[in-house]
Simulated assay, not measured.
Amino acid sequence: MGAIEVNDLAKAYGELRAVNGVSFEVAEGEFFGILGPNGAGKTTTLEMIEGLRKPDAGTVTVLGEKPWPRNPRLLPRMGVQLQASSFFERLSAREQIHTFAALYGVAPKRGDEWLERVGLEDKVDTRVEDLSGGQMQRLSIACALVHDPDVVFLDEPTAALDPQARRNLWDLLAGLNDSGRTVVLTTHYMDEAEVLCDRVAIMDRGQVLKLDTPRQLIRSLDAPTRITVAAGQLEQSEAEAMAGIEKVHLDTDGLVLTTRQPAVVLTKLADNGHLDGVAVASGTLEDVFLDVTGREYRA
């Protein structure tokens, strides 16, 4: 039995089918990602798994227990970081996490340790209403983890964080998974999912459209490789005559060669002494995401 089992889950709001027959399983100790555009049903799915929302149909089990109706045996074993968190007013960051720790019967020292781990040791006496958006996000994650849960749900955990803070938090989240916890993540950052997740489910319009490891999803796309040769290294006509080349175009970084036979092209470039400054870019999870969900803008 997996840590989480979701079978034919459904939730509608009037005519809108927010979640429409979602099924997947998360193994114990797995880092599982749920990706999708705005309105795909990610957060609604997560809330039903967490026991915050009643499904219209389907079943969910977490650690062998049903999360709905609210299950007092399961609650201490889960950590939940919501997309938008509300804190107790007029409390400092330290008072806030000490309160969460007390609710779970955890020593205040554990709360102090988590504030340090998420980089808030210099904000312990700052009231939550005076924290920045990114600082509140980090405090929310610390509060979700203070009781050392077996399963952690993270809904857009790095939203509002600067690039350095995001990378630091990636190390923290990877460490959570390394210690044997099951982690379920929703994110809009494809690089985040590609680095952290063992498997990802791509959702759109309430359904799971693709589910696999990031590497396998990228391989299944059969995306071409783009090889950029520094300006002045190679004539465009010479590039167009090379075996394995599908397209050649000039951009600000140099000559871009598009191919599905990168080994052949790179060998030819090496034979002719054109490897200086070469950059190679293959398909990414973002390419898969756009291929599956489309490229139209969604508010």
Score class of each variant (00 low, 15 high):
270 A>W: 07
236 Q>G: 11
121 E>W: 09
12 A>R: 15
142 A>V: 00
47 E>C: 10
13 Y>R: 12
143 C>T: 03
206 G>M: 13
293 T>C: 07
163 P>D: 10
140 S>R: 07
144 A>M: 04
108 P>A: 09
223 A>T: 12
270 A>N: 11
275 L>K: 00
139 L>Q: 03
41 G>A: 02
234 L>S: 02
214 P>F: 12
38 N>Y: 04
12 A>N: 15
286 E>D: 12
234 L>G: 01
127 R>G: 10
234 L>D: 00
189 Y>F: 14
137 Q>P: 11
154 L>M: 10
208 V>A: 11
285 L>N: 04
145 L>T: 04
179 S>Q: 11
146 V>Q: 10
77 R>C: 00
113 E>K: 06
6 V>C: 07
229 V>A: 04
61 T>P: 02
144 A>N: 05
83 Q>S: 01
92 S>K: 07
215 R>H: 13
168 N>K: 15
145 L>G: 06
69 P>S: 02
110 R>W: 05
90 R>N: 15
209 L>F: 13
159 A>N: 15
248 V>L: 02
241 A>G: 02
57 A>C: 08
195 V>F: 14
291 D>V: 07
251 D>V: 08
207 Q>T: 15
245 I>M: 04
220 S>I: 12
228 T>W: 05
76 P>W: 08
93 A>T: 04
5 E>C: 13
95 E>Q: 07
4 I>M: 07
10 A>G: 15
270 A>F: 10
217 L>S: 03
3 A>P: 00
116 E>A: 15
204 D>M: 05
190 M>V: 06
203 M>T: 11
226 R>Y: 14
136 M>W: 10
189 Y>T: 05
186 T>Q: 03
124 V>K: 09
178 D>P: 05
121 E>C: 09
118 V>E: 09
